[in-house]
Design a protein around this nucleic acid. Structure first.
Lengths: 205, 205, 205, 205
DNA sequence: TGGTAAGCGAGACGGTACGTCGAGTCTTAAG
DNA sequence: CTTAAGACTCGACGTACCGTCTCGCTTACCA
């Protein structure tokens, strides 16, 4: 007996599905997530409301799918590895900072973030589909750095990732201060070298 | 005729105000922020809707006030300073972790967080009334550590604060993994010592 | 404890009530009862849908009220009594025929009729508020005719009323043939004199 | 290319047709005409919606067909003619009264009636297929009575039919009072003899 | 006897209206 | 002037059916 909530997906019209996801992203950029209604998405996509409700249980789930469809393509690459960890991280974080400073992307990501924060189900889905794969890439780069002797061998990579990316995300979310590439540099530098004073005896080595 | 938008605050009935704030907090814990409506708060508080609209511009602002009323008491103290920075930070973060693991407080803080993330006005208000004062306390403790030679003199304190508190908040928000005091310890330790390998031939050992 | 379905009527805004009833009648004439929607009435009346649902349980009940408001005024008069029963009845029925031939009134009355036919509650209400009072007037006129010796004393007045008005209403409803004043005359004449052959002995008297 | 509006009737699956008509009648009795939907009929009949739309233009037309299928059988006979007009009419009307007092038939006939009242097209169809044939039977019986000298020769038979059947249908529709065979008798009696006083000095007595 | 053109069950689709909920405004009556 | 109460307009919610459409499938007819 099939679950009535999830109708036969083989009958699904994919053009309609894509139109809906596109409309959702489009309208988030247009009016913001708070004013994004199912009715507006349906109208923009030229679709009946029922068609949306047939395939998604909530605005959050729909938007979530829309965003992940967007993000999922092309992110599969690995992080750069020139041999210089600090430089590579700075590069990556600078790119992230640029993305987060894009008006439309900023809106969409904030919306996605709040959905995830409030809904455990979406959080788990997000972790599986986007966050964990990204974390693996980050950890792979850090592991390479460990092998190259640029990172302490006993550092927990989970903590390391949080230490580098956490501050950026936090400043972005809370708008504590403008999010600049200088800040990204500072974070990388400080995270790598630590907050404690370096030993005064002799130069860095 | 006075501006209707800002009624004479001296006339305000403070018992009513407290009843409203209490109802707001109560009902967030009860049904969650998404289902928290002005009408529900009014009914719970035994108050007319107009009374709420007279004094607060939005649900977010009201909830915000309610939360700050709660948080404002008792947080005025400085951070502990036993002379051992790492221990002090671990203590503080462990307390934070405990708070964030409390069901009702978790819900309320997530709600507050999402409001802030989406609303620049509230973000500014939050910074002024809660985040900046807290940051000053944190920075004061770190500055003391600098004076005591436990922290590098050239470290930017803003970055230092982000490096220590950012990872905790992020893991809480995204539920990447359970938020434990062990994790707090690891973060403090790693942030202080840095990710890079410590020189093997030096006074450290 | 007041019934939640019927809120305090003293607070009711009567201008709004009248606007709704007027809009209902107006739009029945405009688009017909089948295409008459609550939404259309609300829009025409410049009123929120909720206001309609607050005071009426269904489209039928609303339309019913609208119609009776219209019909209730001015119908209080008695039927004409010139002493000539046949002439008086013909006059009354001719007027009725004229009303039923008016496009807009025809539509409204058909709508009312179907509501009454399908809904016992409305039928009872209709009887109380409109049909019974009208029947009383009709019976009063016939009783006067009995007193004047123009109507058989042993005739059941209920049956008499049905015999005179029934054919008219039926032809109107089923459109068996055009509804003319000639037909009305014929009905009155035949009902009064009966279908059986009159005695041939001597003229009518 | 054949007109899509009129599919080849020779191909029609008659079992399906009967299932649909049966489902329509069944569900009218079950939930009433107002809640009778095409979708419900289709589901009950185990039939796709398209199959219904292929053969009927509207719910009214479908129900109409269903009803006439039911009524068409057995009604072909003539009205009884024992030579006693009054007795024959009373017999027929008593049977009609019994039918109209049957719960399920009552529902179905009310539904049919309202469709006819509101839809001129159906009214014409109804006249052609059911009402006119019945009227002819009625008029034939009355004509026989005229020939037998039981009915005035100058009476318009259309009016006569209306005078006899109209009151019954009206009382049924409006539920003015319970529909009994006594009432039927009274109507026949009064219609035949007329409302006016009979001359006291004459052959009648 | 096999190809093909219906009829058919199923159900997704774009729509319209439903009846409900809550937002934010306005009015009334009590204090 | 503030307050509780609640009616008001408005807009979105999520659901039910409408009538159209497309999909495989079965079932005749015709070559």
């Amino acid at each position: 007996m099939p679950t009535p909530a999830t109708p036969d997906p083989t009958r699904r019209n994919d053009a309609v599905r894509r139109a809906i996801l596109a409309a959702a992203l489009d309208q988030v950029g247009e009016v913001g997530y708070a004013k994004l209604t199912i009715e507006r998405i349906a109208k923009t996509a030229g679709v009946g409301k029922q068609t949306i409700y047939r395939w998604w249980p909530s605005k959050g789930a729909l938007f979530f799918d829309a965003f992940l469809d967007l993000a999922g393509d092309g992110e599969a690459a690995a992080l750069p590895d020139t041999g210089d960890l600090a430089a590579d991280l700075t590069l990556v974080l600078t790119a992230t900072v640029a993305e987060l400073n894009d008006e439309r992307l900023d809106r969409a990501m904030r919306a996605l973030h709040t959905e995830i924060v409030l809904d455990q189900t979406l959080a788990a889905d997000y972790a599986t589909r986007l966050d964990n794969p990204m974390r693996e890439l980050k950890k792979a780069r850090l592991r390479a750095a460990q092998d190259a002797g640029q990172l302490a061998a006993d550092v927990d990579l989970e903590v390391a990732v949080d230490l580098i990316w956490g501050p950026i995300l936090n400043r972005w979310l809370h708008r504590t201060a403008p999010l600049t590439s200088e800040y990204a540099e500072q974070v990388v530098d400080t995270a790598l070298r630590g907050l404690q004073p370096r030993p005064t005896s002799g130069p860095d080595r």
